[in-house]
Design a protein around this nucleic acid. Structure first.
Lengths: 224, 224
DNA sequence: ACACCGTCTGTGACTAAGTCACATTCAATG
DNA sequence: CATTGAATGTGACTTAGTCACAGACGGTGT
């Protein structure tokens, strides 16, 4: 009876829907669709996950947390993507210090470890999906290194505002949250935002930033 | 005739030498031992590699290079480890901006892509090795993010000096190279090193740093 | 031996970013 | 409408990065 719903999700994964019928059936029959409320910790240091997660809808934020309580966002996993950290926590020798938190309500498919192994064996397509997920995450994190080590903060902030703004040109986030995106201190983000406001690029209100001049922000984000 | 030598290398990989005989034979018969001189670029942005590399001896430095010419070391691959970047360059959708360079003469085993695929299919042990290599590299790079974003430079420099010093307490590297390790500017590294010297922790000569007080450096590296 | 030259190192002056210690403002709630 | 906790603003200071140089060292060829 739940069959109609169970087969539907696979269509949201471009990479999966082209798999041969046997492999699709394995996924559909043995994977279970789960709903996770916003703000849930999906994985964290010291907590081993037993499932391979495919995110159908919503986003999971993966971030690094420092001893001093500062945070930095490493990447986000959203609809149609796979969350490799849940599985790879098992395999890493060193302990991760990163954590994954649902930013919105998330609907996901949990593939048990055994089925994950089976698919790796019998499906070249599935292998490709898993490896390219890994490769892309490494690439994401390397990009964060590049950003933090070499780019100016005003540039990074402007870019982040553009990335996070919806079509209404509004970023719904506190300055604390924006600072955590970039791995900087709240005061620093605050001062930069004030400067952006002084220049007429944004308008600040409690808990949100309204973009007023996307062009100017874009120029700032891509300067030299 | 080359058999004696061919079977020898597998013993330097703790993870591989416990594989079943069939899988070991595949590796030994189809992999080819290659020698790479120091300073060779093993992989770079835009260059796809066709082999899976197992490093027998020597080290490969993987680093990020910025547009402005600044560098930062992400991790090193040394004897008994696998270089996943060579294979995963193929799989990532985004282009990498990292490059791998041999720091010493390197002896490695190149596993052709087809054999790599075969082994992934038939060997759970080999899969575990590959995935744990990926997981550990992600972990390494995340650690770099943490370091760059949250740790003080003097602390990081002290740690790096201790890491890189041989048993003779000497780090053979120019200040430029040390700066590149940490992703900072040469002048900054230079000033910090001078300060370390003033405190009697190190002695500076052209192209090398001699450690004079490991304890003090260790305290600096682990302070709060 | 010595002059040459490229690399490596040192420094001052300035800008950018992070820290610390607060003051202030806002919006939800009783 | 008064209280309260979260969010924001700011000054003063330290640490890190940039820019523009000036020296200093060590290998090379004559």
């Amino acid at each position: 009876m739940a069959d109609a719903k169970d087969t539907a999700w696979i269509e949201s994964f471009p990479a999966l829907k082209d798999l041969p019928e046997t492999e699709r059936r394995l996924l559909v029959e043995r994977g279970s669709v789960i709903d996770i409320p916003a703000g849930t910790t999906v994985f964290a240091p010291g907590v081993a996950a037993e499932n391979f997660l495919l995110v159908i809808d919503g986003t999971v934020r993966v971030q690094q947390v420092s001893a001093g309580g500062r945070e930095i966002v490493l990447y986000r996993v959203s609809g149609g993507e796979t969350c490799i950290m849940t599985t790879s926590c098992l395999m890493a020798e060193e302990a991760y210090t990163a954590e994954g938190i649902t930013e919105t309500d998330v609907r996901a498919v949990a593939i048990p470890k055994t089925v994950f192994e089976e698919l790796l064996v019998l499906s070249p397509g599935f292998r490709r999906i898993v490896f390219s997920a890994y490769a892309n995450r490494i690439s994401d994190v390397m990009h964060v290194v590049e950003d933090v080590a070499f780019e100016r903060l005003d540039k990074r902030l402007a870019q982040r505002l553009l990335d996070r703004a919806g079509s209404d040109d509004i970023v719904r986030a506190t300055q604390q949250e924006l600072a955590a995106e970039l791995g900087t201190a709240r005061e620093v983000a605050s001062r930069l935002l004030k400067e952006f406001e002084r220049r007429g690029w944004v308008a600040l209100t409690r808990g949100q930033v309204a973009l007023r001049d996307r062009d100017a922000l874009h120029r700032a984000a891509t300067a030299e």
